[in-house]
Design a protein around this nucleic acid. Structure first.
Lengths: 224, 224
DNA sequence: TACCGCCGCATTGGATCCATTCCAATTTAC
DNA sequence: GTAAATTGGAATGGATCCAATGCGGCGGTA
């Protein structure tokens, strides 16, 4: 995911493609907090005009990942402890609700999707592929949101999650954290299979709290 | 809130002002579902160029209130039952969490704010001022979100709430609904004063469910 | 009379140009 | 030597112009 012109499909709206590109660069830490975002430079690198870049950056700004200062400059937003906590609270509330609904609606096909995800996740952890593991963790949560049949809920979670993900990508996780994630995903899936809504919600809460605490630890030094 | 050029402050970003204007027109039902949104016409009416109007409409589109079809037109989104239900689920999850936190953090000053709001709310209901009552209901909820000290949570609620508000503004409420709202707000405030987090959350859930059911009833005929 | 195809108009998407304003560096005055 | 003022560069905000495309109307033909 680079700023390479050849990755753009001119038949699709450029602003959406550029939005995903830049947002991803920020979330995975390739653009760091405080770094300058120059619309003209990005436009030139991508071989497009400022217009789609502007609209993409504006949208990312609406989500709180960049700060636009008129007539001054645009910067990647700092990672603040307050933002992290708020994102966690929102995400927890929404994903606990997702888990409850998914427990009621879990189908064999969806169950299999989650099983396959966990198989891949275990492999990634055992091989030490942390970036892949984060992506698979992401897919696990998104799959649950899709099972519960509320597409907007995942968009809301995704926006909150971005803050936490920035912290995660910036540091190697604690030893054993990957295995712990697997165990907690298993607990969630078990509850879902039992159609135990409250159990799934509790397992989800437990998992998210662990994830949040870990993020705070590994990101402690770069909190502004 | 009209499309009057004199209401614009040229020193502030136009796109934000225009965003609030258009969004409000849609939420209060002055622009109805399916209605055409012509960027050029709005720009001319406001005495500005298409650029800030475009960015405002794009943002409203990201929130799901309008549908942009390339090379065809832009339309106010229909009110669908699925969207309403999803908005309700998200709002309920977030506002129950707001209520829990507010119960722990309620100060005398904040309590007074809520009391004053309810006094004004009672007056509006007794005088039959429904639009005012809706706005005061809105302030009550926003105040609770502010008490709990998580600014982003209200933004997320506000986006979800917009769908429900569209239904509310389009119809006269059932007789007695206003009084019921007052009673439920009292129940929420009582729990907050007792610092009873779970009680406040339950009272909030009860209130939101009533509001949701009422919205479904009055908006039943205009659901696409 | 009905259906198929072509052409023009309206609308959004993108590119480019101009205006405004903030920041920083340099210069000048004390 | 220091501090303040001024000036120039650079960035975003806004305006205007061009391109692409979907839709509707019109006409011709079967």
């Amino acid at each position: 995911m680079d700023l390479d012109p050849s990755t753009l499909n001119r038949a699709l709206p450029l602003r959406d493609q550029i939005y995903h590109k830049i947002r991803n660069l920020i979330v995975v830490g390739q653009m760091k907090p405080g770094e300058v975002i120059n619309e003209v430079a990005i436009a030139e690198a991508l071989g497009v005009s400022r217009t789609p870049v502007r609209e993409a950056v504006k949208r990312i700004s609406d989500e709180g990942l960049v700060k636009i200062l008129a007539q001054t400059g645009t910067y990647v937003a700092p990672i603040s402890r307050a933002d992290l906590e708020e994102a966690y609270v929102i995400r927890r509330a929404l994903e606990m609700e997702s888990a409850r609904r998914a427990a009621a609606k879990l189908t064999p096909a969806a169950s299999e999707l989650l099983e396959d995800n966990m198989t891949a996740h275990r492999l990634a952890i055992s091989r030490g592929r942390y970036a892949t593991a984060i992506q698979l963790d992401d897919v696990f949560h998104r799959t649950i949101a899709e099972i519960c049949g509320l597409p907007m809920i995942w968009r809301a979670v995704d926006i909150s999650k971005a803050q936490m993900d920035r912290g995660r990508y910036l540091a190697i996780p604690r030893p054993g954290y990957g295995e712990q994630t697997i165990e907690q995903h298993e607990a969630i899936l078990d509850a879902l299979k039992r159609h135990d809504a409250e159990g799934a919600a509790q397992a989800m809460e437990n998992h998210l709290e662990t994830s949040f605490r870990n993020t705070l630890e590994v990101a402690a030094d770069l909190l502004g």
